[in-house]
Design a protein around this nucleic acid. Structure first.
Lengths: 230, 230
DNA sequence: TTTACTTTCAAACAAGTGTTTGATATGTTG
DNA sequence: CAACATATCAAACACTTGTTTGAAAGTAAA
């Protein structure tokens, strides 16, 4: 979006609009929709308190404007064009997704906002759901379907998608808590990539198990090679 | 907790205290700490607005009182006494934990509150962390260690715990969103148990892969039996 | 410059927040 | 009963919230 409406960005009005949206993304992603106040956003954007309602009608309108899933869409489109086996494409997706979610330097705070939205819906949930969550779930479902083949039914497939997504968003949502446990915890690129690799490999193994389980849902392989009843 | 301070529960004062705590748990778990208002809690508890501050000092005090991890502790203690292989104990834990998290009829809304806390910390985080989260992470770490053995280092072990926990809390946190996707979604015991079985099997397979990955972190088994580079 | 329009701003608004107050009721003890 | 501490209550308090207002400043065309 930064490139699309660049021509009007010279206008002073468009500049404050852009500053407001930027500040909103910063604070919404940091403190959530309820936690971030209009006054704080305006202070960060160096604008008057009335600016939000003048330019966006309401705080809700600003939230709707602040959401921009171009990065998320681009990620999915890029992934779809990669010529590789679904396992590798899954790993690529998880890697890119985790980089979005965790990299503090990354500009795409929209994904952090979406992770928040998943956990605690706001009035803007409709737009978010239609534009981002549903397509994302659909994208992941197709990808996971490629991996498990036709050995898993719809319910098992859905659960596999949730397992994957749950792992990814956990790192984002639980960051403050985990940081209390490990005060010097920080996610550099290497750490994020290691985490992504773990999630991808962990999940692919889980998916194979889920697919296998459709054939015999009472057996699973343990590490020691035993087969136990579960 | 209901049985421990039963002797004093006859007192009218203790009754309103109990009603307030109960209402608080209901609304905190439903709308979060910020989302639930003191007035709403008091209305639900059929008590005066001033009752919260009179009995608990503040809204924060009520939150601290509302947290009660006896159910979670009992779950862990029960699990530790079970004489079974770690994989089955893991399955049992996930099952009990998911029943706590998802069963609407279940009285242990404290776990739902804790899931919320994990995603969005409140001033009461300290108590919650020390009394519930840290022990829980510790318990899970020991359990997962039993499964992966010494083939996984500390980082891999930690990630396995997060993968497990992330899957569990995802179902709780994302419930409103998933319900939009499947309007007739509801978690009865059968559905919860199926979900728990999925998570347990998915995770055990993932853990075995993570343990295996310590030996050769670049290879994993695909479903078709191929070994690919990841 | 005058005109018309857009954008900014300090100030106020109405509603909601957690909390406090002082009187009133309630129950227990002398 | 009288005295006392406890518990409840309506009302108000101090504060924050999102939002609105009406004047002032800026901007661009006639």
């Amino acid at each position: 979006m930064t490139g699309a409406q660049a021509p009007q960005l010279n206008s002073a009005s468009e500049q404050t609009r852009a500053r407001l949206v930027d500040a909103a993304r910063e604070l919404f992603s940091a403190h959530g929709f309820q936690g971030a106040t209009v006054r704080e956003i305006c202070r960060l954007a160096d604008a008057n308190v009335a600016a939000v309602n003048y330019h966006f009608g309401s705080k809700d309108g600003l939230l709707a404007e602040a959401f921009n899933f171009s990065a998320l869409k681009a990620l999915q489109k890029k992934n779809a064009t990669v010529d590789a086996c679904p396992e590798i494409r899954l790993h690529l997706f998880v890697r890119d997704f985790m980089l979005m979610l965790l990299d503090e330097k990354n500009a795409s705070r929209q994904c952090r906002m979406m992770a928040r939205e998943l956990a605690d819906p706001t009035p803007a949930l409709d737009k978010i759901f239609v534009e981002a969550i549903a397509p994302l779930l659909d994208f992941l479902s197709r990808l996971v379907r490629e991996i498990v083949g036709d050995r898993a039914d719809e319910a098992a497939l859905r659960r596999c998608v949730y397992s994957l997504l749950g792992q990814c968003v956990f790192y984002r949502n639980s960051h403050p808590v985990l940081q209390r446990l490990y005060p010097d915890l920080h996610y550099d690129v290497a750490e994020i990539e290691a985490t992504a690799r773990h999630i991808a490999r962990f999940s692919i193994a889980g998916m194979m198990q889920a697919a296998r389980g459709e054939l015999d849902s009472r057996l699973f392989e343990t590490g020691s090679g035993y087969t136990r009843e579960l």
